[in-house]
């Protein structure tokens, strides 16, 4: 039975649906999203998927080329590294280190950034001013330099790198959240809600945050590409993940030794980092375009 309509009802799609409507037709962005989903499932499911043990050395099979070359083996589709470990398994595991940990770092940092940003955005006065200036200071210090300091204090290692990256990302999140909130506070509906008698807390949770989450996601994707690049760069420099950890950057550094004999051991991890970051950026760009279009309509 058809529902009875008593009066004319404007058919409004939800904002999320609208966003998707503008996002999906962008082929590149859509492609990026698909890639991201694949990478994400890889990061989570890797332990059950790898064809070989990523850390198992096999001295009989050193530097086997990928299977599309004449001397390659079918059971090692991407060949082996200089200790006879299966490259494909290592690359798959790398997804959970380089990409998976980057996501965790961004989420953690975003959460803390949200709290601090909200505190700073909702407050006024000298305290807030000092806090903001400190933030500006932190924003200008290069993230790698900050990571170096943290690694120097805590010692090299993947976990310490993650702390360093979280800390390095934090200022931009606080900054972003603060700006987003400041923007919201100017809106008329916020004033209206205030006039209704809402207190600061209610204002924050029922009006401001729901209206800023898209911006947060956008910030998150930008930070994610930074985080992936930073984890890999620190691994490459030998102050992040240590060998034999199958982190992509560390894998490149490890394989540099065999770059002449087995260029694929350097090329493939780099390609994966590139593809990951590209996918993240494609999605980020697509989101931004979609949001802009939605606003314009």
């Amino acid at each position: 039975m058809k529902k009875l309509r008593l009066y004319y009802e404007e058919h409004n799609k939800g904002p999320l649906k609208l966003l998707w409507k503008h996002f999906a037709p962008q082929h590149f962005a859509f492609f990026g999203l698909v890639l991201l989903i694949i990478l994400l499932s890889l990061a989570v499911l890797t332990p059950f998927l790898t064809p070989h043990d990523p850390y198992l050395q096999n001295s009989q099979l050193l530097l086997v080329p990928p299977s599309w070359q004449d001397s390659g083996l079918v059971s090692y589709p991407l060949g082996t590294d200089d200790l006879g470990r299966d490259l494909m398994s290592r690359l798959m595991l790398g997804a959970s280190y380089t990409f998976g940990l980057a996501i965790l770092a961004v989420l953690g940092s975003l959460l803390v950034g949200l709290v601090l940003g909200a505190l700073s955005g909702m407050s006024k006065g000298v305290k807030s001013s000092i806090f903001n200036h400190l933030l500006d200071l932190a924003l200008t210090i290069p993230s790698l330099l900050l990571a170096i300091v943290i690694v120097a204090v805590l010692g090299p290692g993947l976990l310490n790198t993650i702390w360093a990256i979280m800390l390095a990302l934090l200022p931009q999140f606080i900054h972003g959240v603060r700006n987003a909130i400041a923007q919201q506070l100017k809106q008329d509906y916020v004033t209206a809600y205030r006039l209704d008698g809402a207190n600061q807390r209610q204002l924050l949770f029922s009006v401001i945050l729901p209206n800023t989450w898209e911006q947060l996601v956008l910030m998150g994707t930008m930070a994610l590409s930074t985080a992936v690049l930073d984890i890999a760069a620190l691994g490459f420099l030998g102050i992040g993940a240590q060998s034999p950890t199958a982190e992509w950057g560390a894998m490149i550094a490890d394989s540099l030794d065999s770059i002449y004999l087995a260029p694929w051991t350097v090329a493939l991890p780099g390609l994966l980092i590139f593809v990951t970051v590209l996918a993240v950026n494609l999605v980020g760009d697509g989101l931004r375009v979609a949001m802009k279009k939605r606003r314009e309509n």
């Binding site: 770059i259 350097v266 590139f274 970051v277 950026n281």
Partner: peptide, 9 residues
């Protein structure tokens, strides 16, 4: 998007 160290190599 390109990792600079890989690009350099």
């Amino acid at each position: 998007s390109v990792p600079i160290f890989w690009w350099a190599l």
